[in-house]
């Protein structure tokens, strides 16, 4: 079995490989993971978003609705060094602020790596 260079594997690179590269480059990063969903939610349990301190993102925890809020929390987690459980839903006014307008509720765990 022949194994070639890395160029073609790039698009398939998983989040952990990206995290490893970022850490090697000395960047701080945090991982957000969908740990629970209720009702209709855009991404299933286990979906992950990787964030660095400059707000670079790989992956997703929603269809784009709550990523902004999660990135903010991820940067906080890099500073505190602690994991944090977050919840987003559409049951109140706050829903519009974070924008999960799809009718679901999700729990996301954010943790620094390293």
């Amino acid at each position: 079995m022949a194994r070639g260079g890395e160029s073609m594997t790039e698009p398939n690179e998983d989040i952990l490989s990206v995290a490893a590269r970022w850490l090697e480059e000395g960047r701080h990063c945090a991982l957000a993971t969908v740990v629970e969903t209720w009702g209709s939610s855009p991404r299933p349990i286990g979906s992950q978003l990787l964030v660095d301190e400059a707000s670079n993102m790989v992956g997703s925890v929603s269809g784009g609705c709550i990523e902004g809020a999660v990135v903010h929390e991820a940067k906080e987690a890099m500073i505190s060094g602690e994991g944090k459980l977050l919840e987003y839903g559409v049951t109140d006014e706050q829903a519009w602020e974070v924008g999960l307008a799809c009718g679901g509720k999700i729990q996301v765990y954010v943790e620094p790596i390293g």
């Binding site: 022949a2 160029s7 073609m8």
Partner: peptide
């Protein structure tokens, strides 16, 4: 097929 696992 650069960079792909090829078997002949």
């Amino acid at each position: 097929f650069p960079g792909v696992t090829l078997m002949t």
